[in-house]
């Protein structure tokens, strides 16, 4: 029974995805919606993303330094480890999980509220494709998500550099030597491919949970929680699959 329910939810999700692109809203209206979503989803997240990235980058660097007790291991590895963990996992995956909480619950609760107050019915009755109207601008806005992750990478490494150098663990030039050593350009490509996929997940799964919710204000809160759980689970699974496909083969 559970399985059947999950499968039918998954089916409904893909039907929703197709529906988003039908009967597009006039560009003159859509443009305004896209700018509003960029403001709400992207600009509004920069503060928290910067804060978290900077300090976690610092901690990664300090932790690595504290664990490299063997004097035979060169210190520049601290820079190398910071770069690898920030670029490969911390910025793309963990910032996305945090955004599943921030953006995701915002998306679910705002669409869910429109559902319970009949605003979505009002759109449909007027002849608007409500899925296109509500979800498409979020998808477009989240095309800027890689930009957010780029900032997270930069600030994470900056935090690592400051933490390492000013904590007295290694010199600035050692850290930079570490940043440059064994650099694989494809790792950057891999990180941004992940980011784009996560952005699509972040835009659509919370929308799905808000759009198809039933009930009242209480259920809006519940839907946000459920949406956060599913968005994170799917991001983690996608991360595993993408890593296997892109790096391990």
């Amino acid at each position: 029974m559970m399985l059947v329910r999950y499968l039918s939810q998954i089916g409904k999700y893909f039907i929703m995805l197709a529906e988003i692109f039908k009967k597009p809203t006039k560009w003159s209206v859509m443009r305004g919606l896209v700018f509003k979503e960029i403001d709400d989803l992207i600009i509004d997240s920069l503060g928290i993303v910067s804060f978290i990235s900077f300090f976690v980058g610092g901690v990664v660097s300090i932790q690595t330094a504290l664990n490299l007790t063997n004097p035979l291991i060169p210190k520049y590895l601290i820079g190398f480890a910071t770069r690898q963990s920030v670029v490969l996992e911390f910025a793309p995956t963990f910032i996305s999980i945090i955004m599943a909480g921030k953006m995701g619950s915002f998306i679910t609760s705002s669409i869910g509220t429109m559902r319970v107050t009949e605003q979505i019915d009002a759109l449909e009755v007027m002849g608007v494709n409500s899925l296109n109207y509500l979800v498409f601008p979020k998808l477009i806005a989240l095309l800027l998500f890689p930009f957010v992750i780029g900032i997270a990478m930069f600030l994470g490494i900056l935090g690592g550099w400051l933490g390492g150098v000013y904590g007295g663990f290694l010199s600035s030039s050692e850290f930079i030597q570490g940043l440059q050593s064994e650099f694989v350009p494809f790792h950057i490509v891999y990180a941004f491919i992940k980011t784009v996929i996560f952005a699509l997940i972040l835009a659509t799964i919370p929308s799905f949970h808000g759009y198809y919710m039933k009930g009242g204000a209480l259920e809006v809160g519940k839907a946000s929680t459920v949406s956060f759980v599913w968005t994170s689970v799917i991001i983690i699974l996608a991360n595993y699959i993408l890593t296997q496909l892109l790096l391990a083969s």
Partner: peptide, 23 residues
């Protein structure tokens, strides 16, 4: 058809029980 329905709906005005204004 879906398109005909949407056209028909542009000829419809609806006042919902809870107003359903876009907040």
């Amino acid at each position: 058809t879906d398109d005909e329905r949407r056209d028909l709906r542009t000829e419809i005005g609806m006042v919902f029980q809870g107003s359903a204004l876009f907040d």
